[in-house]
């Protein structure tokens, strides 16, 4: 599994399609924290809201990095769809976690308000939860669940856009509500759990569809 993860990660990095979501993430983070972004936890709410669609975009990049034919060769070489889709999910989660760590560290360095270790870990949990939700949504609508990249983009865009107005009815809303009111909540861990469940469901859906 490690060699498969290494191969898929190397393929994504070679393809350079990851640059678009990465640059959007870095650009918006720069804007968010160009001035006083508020109290520590409050400041994390903007970057958590940002990480959700960015992680979804990155997951679609990972899922579609290999074209259909090369994916078939990888499936045969690795011994089945379940191994390949699990490895692809791990790569997407890995990239999302790197962004979650970056988003958690960024305001510690740039925001004028002092951050405690507790603030940092709450932020890390919030970002991790939002990133996992994004990866889950991205994988759920990417190949092999939906074969056409056009449908994938439309479906992911629709789900991401619809998530925000639903407020506290979604796990993303739990996180943003807690951070926005500058309070720690168990719902942050709940979001991580829901995110992991969504990623697992996406892998299962992919294996069934393939």
């Amino acid at each position: 599994m490690i060699s498969l993860v290494r191969y898929l990660a190397a393929d994504v990095l070679r393809g350079q399609r990851y640059l678009a979501p990465l640059l959007v993430f870095l650009g918006v983070m720069g804007m968010l924290f160009s001035a006083d972004a508020g109290q520590p936890l409050e400041a994390y709410s903007g970057s958590s809201a940002l990480l959700y669609p960015i992680a979804a975009w990155m997951a679609v990049v990972v899922a579609t990095s290999e074209d259909v034919v090369r994916r078939e060769i990888t499936v045969v070489s690795a011994g089945g769809w379940s191994r390949v889709l699990t490895a692809a999910a791990l790569v997407a989660v890995l990239f999302a976690l790197v962004l979650a760590v970056l988003a958690s560290v960024w305001p510690v360095v740039t925001n004028p308000h002092p951050y405690t270790a507790g603030d940092f870990f709450v932020g890390l949990a919030a970002h991790t939860g939002c990133a996992l939700l994004g990866v889950g949504v991205g994988l759920l609508f990417a190949r092999p669940v939906l074969d056409s990249i056009g449908r994938t983009v439309l479906a992911v865009f629709a789900v991401v856009v619809l998530t925000y107005p639903l407020g506290r009815a979604t796990p993303l809303g739990w996180v943003l509500d807690a951070l926005g009111h500058n309070r720690v909540s168990l719902s942050l861990l709940g979001t991580v759990v829901v995110g992991l469940a969504l990623v697992s469901a996406a892998v299962v859906a992919g294996v069934r569809r393939a």
Binding site: D11, R14, G15, V69, V76
Partner: peptide
């Protein structure tokens, strides 16, 4: 071992 009908032509690796 599997070889498909057409090996893709746009592989960056």
């Amino acid at each position: 071992g599997y070889v498909p009908e057409r090996f893709p032509s746009d592989v960056k690796m």
